[in-house]
Nucleic acid binder design. Structure first.
Lengths: 224, 224
DNA sequence: TAGATTGTTAATCGATTAACAATC
DNA sequence: TAGATTGTTAATCGATTAACAATC
């Protein structure tokens, strides 16, 4: 096996590292905005909220983009991470279920600024179709397959109620979508080649409550 | 060291387990709603989207709530998990920043059904104060400390813009809040006794895009 | 008793961390 | 050269998984 091309990542990057790369990228953007051109691992780690050993270990999976004794060039490292996580691409996205949350997601600027382009908003409720949200008209759910093939949509966002989530996922998979971000509090059954990530707002709150209970000594698990 | 009282959890539960307990609870609620009174670890694991070995290992940290050869009593296990993660308590919550996302959170039924009670919505923008969202009037950010002490608020939710997030966190900490759910894309500096969990909508999408890029062979990391 | 299923053990795997040799 | 900082090593820690003894 020969060497990889110019500093390219060797095979596989650990999941934990992948999850932190967007955080580093955001921190680098802040540094660049502040006019910083070079930073040490210590500096960048501080801005990202991790320790420097972890940061250097994570970056080592991508390649050697720093200079010993000097640090990292902000602009160069930023580009390398952006390329690695696909932020140099344009990602057409559809959002299904335009209730309160779908509404918020459609308006969320953090998507468009990272290469995600919302090509359509869909809702199964006829009362909602035709409404304009974030400058885009809501279309009927049945239009999904056509929109996916027309725009080459690879990523779908489910903001529908839990009761509809599996149907939406099935339709997305049938339409050719292989990556799903699911905000519905439901476990989705999908073929193994489909990647599902779940964001559950109330679960995060429940995890906090668990720790809060421990801190407050309110838990019912004390010894007699 | 003597035995703990009736099946109470021994000391500490692993973080990974804590994060899954709300998922099990949700699955148990579904089973109960469907009229199921008893379930095996295999059955419950399927409903929760994990494998049964992991489920049994997780539950073993709480105590022995199953019956060998039989399975788990749905209602009993549900109560035990609810108690363990503090869902038998009432948790007063404040939400700060009532833009699109704050609006969606205020209307999210998944909070109230799990013991979280939104006692106030706050916003620094005078143009928003007085507006009624989800049946609650938006109040000025300056009211935070009074509301926290009045209602004994232990958990704060930040849905403000990133630029304001640290100020909001500082005010929450000063007011006595020790658990924060942060939706702003910002790294917060807080005293170590304060627990911060972060939900970042665009990071989840970026993780999906990374894997999608790999699947599609679009990544710039291939060998020459 | 025979069949079923839990709770636990032990092996494996992946993530974190500190320390430091390499090197700018 | 001396000082600084990366990239890597090796140790540690925590999570996952399969297998099975315990026991209903």
């Amino acid at each position: 096996m020969s060497k990889l091309s110019g500093g390219a990542a060797a095979s596989r990057i650990p999941e934990a590292t992948v999850a932190r790369l967007p955080v580093y990228l955001r921190a680098l953007n802040s540094l660049a905005d502040a006019g910083t051109t070079t930073c040490s691992s210590e500096h960048l780690a501080g801005a990202a909220g991790v320790n420097s050993a972890k940061l250097r270990k994570d970056l080592s999976h991508l390649g050697s983009y720093g200079t010993r004794g000097v640090g990292y060039d902000v602009e160069y490292l930023r580009y390398q991470i952006a390329r690695e996580i696909g932020q140099t691409h344009d990602w057409p996205v559809v959002i299904v279920g335009i209730g309160n949350l779908g509404h918020a997601l459609a308006n969320y600027s953090g998507f468009s600024s990272r290469g995600f382009r919302t090509v359509a908003l869909l809702d199964a409720d006829p009362a909602r179709t035709g409404q304009v949200v974030a400058g885009t008209e809501i279309r009927p759910f049945g239009d999904l397959a056509g929109i996916v093939s027309e725009h080459g949509v690879a990523i779908g966002v489910i903001a529908a109620p839990a009761s509809a989530a599996q149907d939406v996922a099935d339709a997305m998979v049938a339409a050719g979508i292989r990556s799903i971000l699911n905000f519905a509090p439901a476990v989705l059954a999908v073929p193994e080649e489909v990647d599902v990530r779940k964001v559950d707002l109330s679960i995060e709150l429940q995890i906090l409550a668990y720790h809060e209970q421990r801190k407050s000594g309110l838990d019912g698990a004390e010894a007699i």
